[in-house]
Design a protein around this nucleic acid. Sequence first.
DNA 1: TAGATTGTTAATCGATTAACAATC
DNA 2: TAGATTGTTAATCGATTAACAATC
Lengths: 228, 228
Amino acid sequence: MSDNRLHIANLPTIQRLPAYLRELRTLRARGEEFVSTTYLSERLQIIPIVVRKDLTVTGAVGKPRIGFSVAELITSIESFLGWQQAKQAFLLGVGHLGTALLGYGGFIQNGLTIVTAFDTNPTKTGTTVHGKTVHALHQLPEMAKELSIDVGILTVPATAAQESANILVRAGIRGIWNFTSAKLDVPETVVCQDQDLSEGLAVLTTRLRRNAEEATDPSAPAATANEL
Amino acid sequence: MSDNRLHIANLPTIQRLPAYLRELRTLRARGEEFVSTTYLSERLQIIPIVVRKDLTVTGAVGKPRIGFSVAELITSIESFLGWQQAKQAFLLGVGHLGTALLGYGGFIQNGLTIVTAFDTNPTKTGTTVHGKTVHALHQLPEMAKELSIDVGILTVPATAAQESANILVRAGIRGIWNFTSAKLDVPETVVCQDQDLSEGLAVLTTRLRRNAEEATDPSAPAATANEL
DNA sequence: TAGATTGTTAATCGATTAACAATC
DNA sequence: TAGATTGTTAATCGATTAACAATC
């Protein structure tokens, strides 16, 4: 078990970190200097020991009896997530969802700046959506060379997803945030993160069905927080 | 270990089911009658044994040497997820994201129909967005009584999220799909599914950071599919 | 029959939870 | 000092993976 293990955090932990960060920023805005895992636990409905384990992973160190420095904890989490310096992103596909993401202001706090958008539709190229110019897709390689782009956000139709991903890969982009339902083939050097709404919907409807079954059959075991 | 356990599937399995379903529908459209787990495994980049375990959970039964009936497998997954008969949904908050979801055609295939939308902004109420009328929020309780609504989709600002959730709960809605970053308090009888973009972004940026570290330090252990 | 595929049982692995020691 | 909180080590639990038997 080498030291390298230290920097391998588990997936659930990583997914919980943004929630801590949000709460911590609220505390900072209120001028709070210290925070305990007990407090975070209650606010976020996560059991205390999980909070403690999660924070440990980020390298944050607390003071017994006092808790964690809010400012230090924010820095620890941000640096762990790589959110300290904003990643530059291209958005591909200015449809409904692409437009919504262009207008979403929250990404800046989460270390992501959408630099500009691309589309193949000539009625869209040249227009400005939420303050960002929409360029023709064929301009992407050239613009990627000039700007230093880390991430491509894919909001194109599923049928155009692989082709768009190929363009991003060829342009040297290292990360793809894939909002389409297509399963993409990318080289190992490129990270592809699927953001599939149907996953969340599947969990919701399954939980609904289970809840309904419990209501009609009280002998059925209730799902624990861990199960669903 | 009672028989009831059979209907408790694990979360990762549930999240993978929509991908199988999508692939199966493509096969059905092509007129394919049977499919093997080997095929699904290759198409979706999921190892065969996981596919087999996942399909077992839905109650589907295959034929050795032949595979699963595409039609039966679709039915098994749909019924497991509760996607056979579409759930009726109200959407609250017709901003960028709400508008995008109203315009998204894919929900129907995933057992969800957005019946109508609500907003507090008088410039929006009365208008039609992607074919759906936007009603004033105060009309919600009355309309929920008339229509049989299963799910509320929350795309309001985070600051209005709890208040909106309260309205939904009072109107008797049993499931909330929460697209805001607010952590909601709801009764145990109500299922609240958080759909938080920042979780996915956290995973993406952490994987990017790790990939970059591996590139500079080849001795660092590569993350397995399981880790991230 | 041979072999591809399903389905089950056991082993491994990792994440969660519990217990408790350390500390300010 | 007493006690709340951190941090670590061990135990439990569940999901993944492996091995293999069953079957058409």
